[in-house]
């Protein structure tokens, strides 16, 4: 069992990590171009933490089911002794770990470059927003079996956050610290767990029905 999980994880790291991590570097590059990295003020760090870093979670989590979306692959999956749910679960956890590590690394890097920030609060807020958005994409792509649909919903929800009328979103407005609102880290994490579980179970049920 442990051997199988290790094999799944090694497969994930070897074949599926680089292609998803590279677009995350594009996010880093965008941050560098727009804001630079040295001596960033609090407002700028908040923009980076709340509005840019969470994009990495959408890039990493939404395509969790991508490799099994090809037509005809279901029969191959069913013929395997390894339960596909295990593969999805390990892949999901690995990508969450990747996202959290990337966020921590960049925030720490900004801190060493004399950025003004409350490290733990901003990092937690950033991670919670990213997981919320990423899990939303994960849920939609899982239940609709559409990778693009997952991206669409997650990115549209992200873009709605940029609109000026934030009152209509209430507790679901994500960029809170930047607007001097109370961060909803626990709510975001709670909804993330709900979305991830629903997405995973939904995907498995749909595959079973096929």
């Amino acid at each position: 069992m442990v051997f199988t999980r290790n094999k799944i994880l090694c497969n994930e790291i070897k074949h599926h990590t680089l292609s998803n991590v590279l677009p995350c570097f594009a996010v880093f590059l965008l941050i560098y171009i727009l804001f630079g990295i040295e001596g960033l003020k609090k407002d700028t760090v908040l923009i980076i933490a709340e509005r840019f870093l969470p994009l990495m979670a959408i890039i990493l989590l939404t395509p969790c089911f991508e490799y099994e979306l090809d037509k005809g692959i279901n029969q191959v999956i069913r013929s395997k002794t390894i339960y596909i749910g295990e593969t999805y679960f390990i892949r999901m956890i690995w990508r969450i770990v990747l996202y959290v590590l990337s966020t921590l690394m960049l925030m720490q890097f900004l801190k060493t470059q004399r950025a003004h920030m409350e490290f733990s609060l901003y990092t937690l807020e950033s991670i919670s927003i990213g997981l919320f958005l990423g899990s939303l994409g994960f849920l939609i792509s899982g239940i609709s079996s559409s990778l693009i649909g997952g991206y669409l919903v997650a990115l549209v929800y992200y873009l709605i956050q940029w609109m000026p009328n934030l009152k209509m979103l209430g507790a679901f407005y994500l960029f809170r610290i930047g607007k001097n609102l109370e961060p909803m880290i626990e709510l975001n994490i709670g909804i993330t767990l709900l979305f991830l579980i629903s997405g995973l179970l939904g995907k498995l049920m749909i595959e079973r029905r096929r």
Partner: peptide
């Protein structure tokens, strides 16, 4: 300037997915 890109990508991507 942004929304139609999803359909454009999906239409071409579907060829690959559906083999």
């Amino acid at each position: 300037g942004i929304i139609p890109i999803f359909l454009a990508v999906a239409i071409w991507f579907k060829d690959q997915r559906s083999k």
